[in-house]
Structure formats: structure tokens, C-alpha cells
């Protein structure tokens, strides 16, 4: 994304929630190429609210991935494997 000219941007978005839903579909890989093109290349360049929302959404996704994962304890993995092997042939 090009760095937009902050001074020329609208400060408020009349369709904030609709835009946020579209933005989320884009980031989730669920929007069409045309929707993505229009939103990213046009709307984000001129709307401060959505521009900020874009960065916030990206940051939250990054933080979730970084902070909200847990690995299964090794002994649990081994115990599951053992139980399955015991069940083989039954």
C-alpha cells in the first residue's frame, strides 16, 4: 500500500462498520479481487478512519498469532499415541 497523503484524507467515514466488515473479508481472503482493489487502492488512500482500522486489524491479527498459541505437552502427545496403538486391531 502506498503511503497516503494524510492531509488530504477524510477524517470520518460515513460507512465505518460496512467498511470494517469489507476490510475483514479482505484480510480473511474472502473478498473478490475487485473489492480488494477498490478498497485498498482507492478508499484506504482517502479515508483516515479506514486507514487506521486497517493497521489496527493487521496488528491485532499479528498479536493473536504471536501471543495466543500453546503447544501440547509432550507427555500428552505420547500418551495419546500409546492409547491409539493399543487400540489397533480391536
Amino acid at each position: 500500500m502506498n503511503m497516503p497523503d494524510m492531509n488530504k484524507m477524510k477524517q470520518d467515514c460515513p460507512n465505518k462498520q460496512e467498511c470494517l466488515q469489507l476490510l475483514q473479508s479482505i484480510l480473511d481472503g474472502e473478498a473478490t479481487a475487485a473489492q480488494k482493489e477498490t478498497f485498498m487502492k482507492q478508499h484506504l488512500q482517502e479515508c483516515m478512519t479506514c486507514y487506521q482500522n486497517y493497521h489496527l486489524e493487521v496488528a491485532i491479527r499479528g498479536l493473536l498469532k504471536q501471543k495466543c498459541s500453546n503447544e501440547a505437552p509432550e507427555e500428552l502427545i505420547n500418551s495419546i499415541k500409546e492409547k491409539v496403538i493399543k487400540n489397533l486391531g480391536q
Binding site: 495466543c68 500453546n70 503447544e71 501440547a72 500428552l76 495419546i80 499415541k81
Partner: peptide
Amino acid sequence: FMPHINAMYNFAYR
């Protein structure tokens, strides 16, 4: 099945 065990554990924990 086993390659997803960490993701599954995380889901179970959450």
C-alpha cells in the same frame, strides 16, 4: 491427525 495436535490443544485450552 497428529500434525494438528498443537493447534487442537490450543483450541481445547481456549
